[in-house]
């Protein structure tokens, strides 16, 4: 089993202590995990993960099915609490912040899901505007449902992803690829400091996949945002990200700059383990 190389890569910040970083939100990394673990029933979906992601980094999470990629991402956007260890966003420990501050932090992290998780019966403009909910009051939110507010921003975001003309269509009439773009536009209007993606391209044809990855990398690059994206296609990871994190059976197997990842590391990561057939069956 490959252990992370303690000396290599862009590991500079790692040497600073947790406490120090937490007290200094200005220079704190966007995400910081310390011994983080998640247990479902008797099994640990994630165990002892240490990870830091700084502004401007483009990190790919790779690993076989069931490795814990989705679970890790859900820790980062605060939708799941770790069973063990700590998770900090922008230097703030999510376990100790007040609910209002948690929402404040969550507003600054945008997530794109493989299944989009859009609301089918709503028009596209509302699904895009849903990215603003964190900054809107309930009243503003309801008013916008009745008559859309800030249409210009929504339209600009849609234009950026190339489907401006779909503004007033019902979302469930759009194709899968177009819906993926709506989800991207939603993240855009949210103006987050970090973008998370959970297999954002696995349902797209190769050309669309390439386009979306470029868009994602571009959106992140625009404003020095951090990008953390789980991918099954290692070649996409190598092409669009500057750092790869390998997960296997809930453990961090490697964490290396894209340039340092070798075919052997990848092969080891996806190796089908004969003795415990637990996670291998869906890897293909």
């Amino acid at each position: 089993m490959i252990r992370p190389d303690p000396g290599g890569g862009n590991r500079g910040i790692r040497n600073r202590s947790w406490r120090q970083r937490e007290s200094d939100p200005g220079t704190a990394p966007v995400f910081s995990l310390r011994g983080a673990g998640v247990r479902f029933g008797a099994t640990w979906a994630l165990e002892g993960v240490d990870l830091e992601v700084g502004a401007g980094e483009r990190v790919a999470l790779v690993g076989p099915s069931g490795a814990g990629k989705t679970t890790l991402l859900s820790l980062l956007n605060g939708s799941r609490r770790p069973t063990a260890g700590r998770v900090a966003v922008l230097g703030r420990d999510l376990a100790t912040v007040r609910p209002s501050e948690l929402r404040h932090l969550q507003r600054r992290v945008g997530t794109v899901h493989q299944q989009h998780h859009l609301v089918g019966p709503l028009r596209v403009v509302h699904n895009v505007n849903a990215g603003r909910l964190g900054e809107w009051s309930l009243l503003e939110a309801v008013r916008s449902l009745i008559s859309p507010t800030d249409v210009a921003a929504a339209e600009a975001a849609l234009a950026r992803v190339g489907i401006a003309e779909k503004l007033y269509e019902r979302t469930d009439t759009l194709s899968g690829g177009q819906q993926q773009r709506v989800a991207l536009a939603r993240v855009l209007v949210q103006r987050p400091v970090a973008i998370l993606g959970d297999e954002p391209i696995s349902s797209l044809d190769p050309a669309r996949a390439e386009e979306v990855m470029q868009l994602l990398a571009g959106l992140a690059g625009d404003a020095g945002r951090a990008l953390v994206v789980s991918l099954h296609a290692v070649e996409h990871a190598l092409r669009h990200c500057n750092r790869l994190v390998g997960l296997r059976q809930g453990r961090l197997v490697f964490d290396a700059a894209a340039a340092e990842v070798t075919p052997v590391m990848v092969e080891e990561l996806y190796r089908i383990d004969q003795s415990t057939d637990e996670h291998g069956e869906g890897a293909a």
């Binding site: 479902f40 029933g41 637990e278």
Partner: peptide, 11 residues
């Protein structure tokens, strides 16, 4: 999936 059929015999 993680309850019945795929539960490893060893566990």
């Amino acid at each position: 999936a993680c309850t019945t059929p795929l539960r490893p015999r060893t566990t």
